[in-house]
């Protein structure tokens, strides 16, 4: 009857997404009056630390077939682990991994599923009610999961990781894992940067910046804030910035605590990817730019004057903090 949280590790390290899923899982387990367990697949460092985020026990599966990612092998392992440990709810992160496996795990377990949940569920009779943003953030929908087994994937930055305990006992779980049919040839990572979907602060530039040569100040602002950089679609299409920075309807959707939009008009397709940000700051020289309607704070002014001033102001602020 327990809640099993698949805690995802990247290159053996647990990231924020795993702690968020655990916090979500711990709160779901409390709602159901049951235990919260973590599941780790493949090699990872410091498994016991998952106890700090609410895992009462960590199940660890090691197997040759888990050496690289394949949706089929991983989903099979998770579904079997759920069955072996008597879990009725499986929780994971709505990451590139989660998107590859949540549907597979749901089918294997005969479980109803909701992907990209933004709030901890509520219990209505035997159903779990799960809220998620739909229509690219233009509305929220509450889904009722009616099956006995349930699968939920949790949207990034939707819940804050909460530390509630100490280390958890780690137990090995032996499982038959089918051989991967998808072979990972290579993983190319952008080094030394906060990955955009995980970033708490995002500094984003649009066509108003005129050209790629003007991105120095965007990068510097991001650096002083410990932020990731993003851009609007025309900027990526023009090759001013790499495609993985493109946010919006056709790019990626993010929900950082702070989104700073510089020289971006705020077209609806752009907003679709960022309107779930907690706080939005818009810097635009046109007071009529639609983005101001979606913003919390705005500066009407020339980015080439405002941004250098903002960098200096943040530096002063950081210096005071220390």
């Amino acid at each position: 009857m327990s809640v099993l949280v698949f805690a995802e590790a990247t290159q053996g390290q647990f990231k924020k997404a795993a702690f968020e899923a655990l916090t979500y899982g711990r709160q779901t387990a409390e709602l159901l009056g049951t235990a919260c367990h973590a599941l780790v697949l493949g090699p990872a460092d410091n498994l016991a630390q998952l106890g700090r985020y609410g895992a009462q026990k960590v199940w660890h599966v090691t197997h040759d077939h888990l050496a690289s990612f394949d949706s089929q092998s991983w989903a099979a392992a998770i579904a079997q682990a759920a069955e072996k440990t008597g879990a009725s709810v499986v929780i994971m992160s709505h990451t590139s991994t989660g998107k590859s496996i949540a549907g597979r795990v749901a089918i294997r377990l005969g479980a109803g599923s909701v992907s990209g949940a933004s709030q901890v569920p509520s219990l209505e009779g035997n159903e779990l009610h799960v809220v998620k943003p739909v229509f690219s953030g233009k509305a929220y929908a509450t889904f009722a999961i009616k099956t006995e087994k349930k699968v939920i994937s949790v949207m990034g930055n939707a819940v804050r990781p909460e530390e509630v305990g100490g280390e958890a006992p780690v137990e090995q779980l032996s499982i038959e894992v089918p051989a991967p049919r998808v072979q990972v040839v290579e993983v190319q990572r952008v080094e030394g940067q906060v990955p955009l979907p995980e970033a708490e602060i995002v500094v984003s530039g649009g066509r108003g910046l005129k050209g790629p040569e003007n991105w120095g100040m965007i990068e510097e602002l991001a650096k002083v804030l410990g932020a990731a950089t993003a851009c609007s679609r025309p900027v990526a299409d023009a090759g001013w910035r790499p495609h993985h920075e493109h946010v919006g309807q056709t790019g990626i959707a993010i929900r950082p605590n702070l989104y700073i939009a510089i020289g971006i008009s705020g077209a609806i397709q752009h907003l679709a990817g960022v309107n779930n940000s907690k706080v939005i700051v818009v810097i635009n020289k046109d007071p009529e730019a639609p983005f101001f309607k979606a913003a919390d704070y705005g500066v009407v002014g020339d980015a080439f004057e405002v941004v250098p001033r903002l960098i200096e102001a943040i530096k002063r602020f950081k210096a005071q903090q220390n």
Binding site: G112, Y140, D296, Y297, V299, G301, R309, A313, F317
Partner: peptide
């Protein structure tokens, strides 16, 4: 169907933008 939508809601309205003068970035 193992799941169904039981309720929709619109996101809370933004309070409206607070404008800051470009000269007063602090």
């Amino acid at each position: 169907d193992p799941v169904s939508v039981v309720q929709y809601a619109l996101p809370p309205k933004k309070k409206g933008v607070k404008l800051i003068e470009p000269e007063h970035i602090d």
